[in-house]
Simulated assay, not measured.
Amino acid sequence: MYVCMCFAVCDRTIRSCIARGARTVEEVGEITEAGTGCGGCQGHIDTLLTATLAPSVLDDLPATG
C-alpha cells in the first residue's frame, strides 16, 4: 500500500527503512523522500514508526511451549 503518494513510497519500503535504523519521520524522509513533498503522509509514517518501535504488551507475557 502506498503511504506517500508524492514519491510513490509503499509501507514495505518504510518498514524496511525502520528495520535498518530510521527512528524519526525526518530520517525516513531523508532515506526514502516519503513525507518530504506535501507532508500529508507524515502522520502515517509516524504511526508505522510507533507500531514498529513501541514495545508490545505481549512481550511481557510468558512464552508457551
Rank of each mutant, 00 (worst) to 15 (best):
M1P: 10
M1T: 09
M1F: 07
Y2A: 08
Y2N: 06
Y2E: 11
Y2L: 13
V3G: 02
V3D: 00
V3S: 02
V3P: 02
C4V: 00
M5Q: 13
M5C: 07
C6W: 01
C6A: 12
F7H: 09
F7K: 06
V9G: 00
V9K: 00
V9L: 03
V9W: 00
V9H: 01
C10M: 08
C10W: 02
D11Y: 05
D11F: 00
I14N: 03
I14P: 07
I14Y: 06
I14T: 03
I14D: 03
I14S: 00
I14V: 05
I14C: 04
R15K: 12
S16D: 14
S16L: 09
C17S: 14
C17V: 09
I18C: 07
I18K: 04
A19N: 11
A19M: 11
A19R: 13
A19Q: 11
R20A: 14
R20S: 13
G21C: 07
G21I: 05
G21M: 06
G21S: 09
G21E: 08
G21F: 04
A22Y: 02
R23C: 10
T24V: 09
T24D: 12
E26V: 09
E26H: 07
E27C: 02
V28Y: 03
V28K: 06
G29C: 06
E30F: 06
E30L: 07
I31F: 05
E33S: 11
A34M: 01
A34P: 06
A34G: 01
A34E: 04
G35P: 03
G37A: 02
C38R: 04
C38F: 04
G39H: 09
G39L: 09
G39K: 07
G40V: 06
G40P: 05
G40I: 07
G40N: 11
G40F: 08
G40S: 09
C41N: 04
C41V: 04
G43H: 08
G43D: 13
I45G: 02
I45T: 00
L49K: 03
L49D: 02
T50W: 09
A51V: 08
A51Y: 10
A51Q: 14
A51T: 14
L53I: 10
L53E: 13
A54N: 14
P55L: 13
V57N: 13
L58N: 12
L58E: 15
D60Q: 11
D60P: 00
L61W: 12
L61P: 07
P62E: 08
A63M: 11
G65N: 13
G65I: 08
G65R: 15
